[in-house]
Design a binder for these strands. Structure first.
Lengths: 308, 308
DNA sequence: TTGCTCCTCACGTCACGTGAGGTGGC
DNA sequence: TTGCTCCTCACGTCACGTGAGGTGGC
């Protein structure tokens, strides 16, 4: 749909108005949908003398984008954010949120099957409680921490949150975690650090985040293999980490910001211990991680310096 | 929550009323949710003289079930069906529907990531069209065929429906399929056959359906392996298929019903050829299936009789 | 009287869909 | 005049949430 508006204006002083119906065709949206988006201020076509709306090419482009984002299940408010240039920042969180929801849906799916094949209602209910607990923590993690970091730890920890709470100790740990996460906003990231962080990590996609997590997992599960297969990369990496280039990079500054925050907020002192109490699979993972780290330091003793 | 109503009535003629608040506690539902379910006729507690509602133990049990089913994302109408003893029949379809939706969500997820990492809008739009086409066909298959059979073929074919329509021939095939599926209700399964079918297959879970499909896929992909690994089972199976026991079983009757229907409805003459035109991966699959079948008949020539 | 529970009724949500009723140009 | 498009306005959807305003028992 290209409008020969130039010709119209040039030769005849005639104004060519683009009507809704054409816009509907071009965007495959209904009239009512378009009217709704107008009412939401997402586009603002001029209104001509005869009260008809006049859509410009920009309006149509915007509507096409809206249509796509709606089909990808974004809500109107999120679409507004995406359109107003916070695109990657918003999509990153939403994509992660969808991935997390996805895992829960999978579990619910299995529960439906279980119901179908005769499992009793009480057992299903118990498992549903576990799913909800997982959801609560994962969502709070996602939105308590800025940008990429929220996506990462939310995804990282949700893996360990599928266990049923059985003991009083676990129940207490769950409460501690909720308290911790509810109070994060008050402690908060320093605002400039937060913006800096978001700006520098907004282009990392949810898939990349998962890949990073998955790689770490594999490395920890089998450190010997990881160390032998990645000798060159690791040497390079360690060199880079000790270089001035790194010390002056945004990555380094982000690391420092995170470290400070984790110390001050109680991430290390409250959150991590509570997670270990809550989830035996997480505790197990931490133990493996420690072993892997020791093996790593045996091979690369220089790396000790980096932690200081 | 057990109410000593017996005692109350026996010794004192005193009526013990169970109030909403207790029901809220017992079911973890809100008052408003409970009121809504009452307005929908899902429970009908008596109303005592002082206009207070009096919930019985049955009401509470029903509410607990409703709560669970809502958390599993069933709508109110579906829940009504489940509660009115069509449980397995409904859950089977819903579970399959969810699985299909699930796959689509996964694809949409990837599209979100693609958008995030810079893929242009037009490419995303094209892929969205493919997802919608898949959805249209899969949904129609699911609800055009009764019980287990609808679940099975819907799931079976959706695997091959992720290709983009590029040629005119594909577009035509797509239309043929839609026409075919829209006219199925008019041809229809004979009603008694349909009931018979649903009755005999309602206990098959969505997971089992997928497993069956997956097994077939594997067998076709590598027939030699399948034939050598399942010698005993296959011999047993062929014997059973030739026995009077089988000829008198519901399974046999169902097979006949299906075969007749597939001949009359145009399933073989219209639907299958159109699918081959639409989807190259399905065409490929069919060719493999034919090869596998020949190999099978080489080893078990007796099986030829079964097809007549 | 106060504080508690219970009730009904009305309106809001979200992203539109479905008419009803009226205008403007050919 | 007829048939077409355009417009606005009101009400419906789904599964409740959020008050408002009033009753009943201790």
């Amino acid at each position: 749909l290209t409008i020969p508006q130039g010709f119209g204006l040039l030769f005849k002083q005639e104004v060519i108005i683009v009507f809704v119906k054409e816009v509907c065709k071009a965007t495959k949206l209904t009239k009512k949908a378009i009217e709704y988006y107008i009412s939401q201020g997402m586009i603002s076509p001029k209104i001509s003398e005869n009260t008809y709306r006049d859509f410009c090419q920009d309006d149509i482009e915007t509507l096409k984008k809206i249509s796509i984002l709606r089909k990808l299940d974004l809500g109107i408010d999120d679409i507004k954010k995406v359109l107003s240039c916070e695109m990657n920042q918003v999509l990153q969180k939403l994509s992660t949120q969808k991935k997390l929801k996805f895992e829960r849906e999978k579990t619910k799916q299995l529960l439906l099957d279980k119901l179908c094949s005769g499992t009793n209602w009480a057992d299903i209910e118990i498992e549903l409680v576990a799913i909800e607990q997982n959801e609560t923590i994962a969502e709070k993690l996602l939105y308590s921490f800025p940008g990429y970091y929220g996506c990462f730890i939310s995804f990282h920890f949700s893996r360990f949150l599928n266990e049923l709470i059985k003991t009083v100790e676990q129940q207490e740990a769950y409460q501690e975690i909720l308290n911790f996460l509810d109070n994060i906003p008050t402690i908060g990231f320093p605002k400039d650090a937060q913006e800096f962080f978001i700006e520098n990590t907004k282009n990392i996609s949810a898939q990349q985040i998962i890949d990073i997590d998955e790689n770490t997992k594999q490395a920890i599960a089998n450190p010997e293999k990881f160390l032998s297969e990645n000798k060159e990369k690791l040497t390079e990496y360690l060199e880079y980490m000790q270089s001035d280039e790194y010390r002056n990079s945004p990555a380094y500054r982000m690391k420092c910001v995170l470290k400070d925050f984790n110390n001050i907020s109680g991430y290390y002192k409250i959150f991590i211990p509570a997670m270990k109490k809550l989830s035996s699979s997480y505790k197990e993972y931490c133990m493996q991680a420690e072993i892997a780290n020791e093996k790593f330091l045996e091979v690369y003793p220089d790396a000790k310096k980096l932690d200081e």
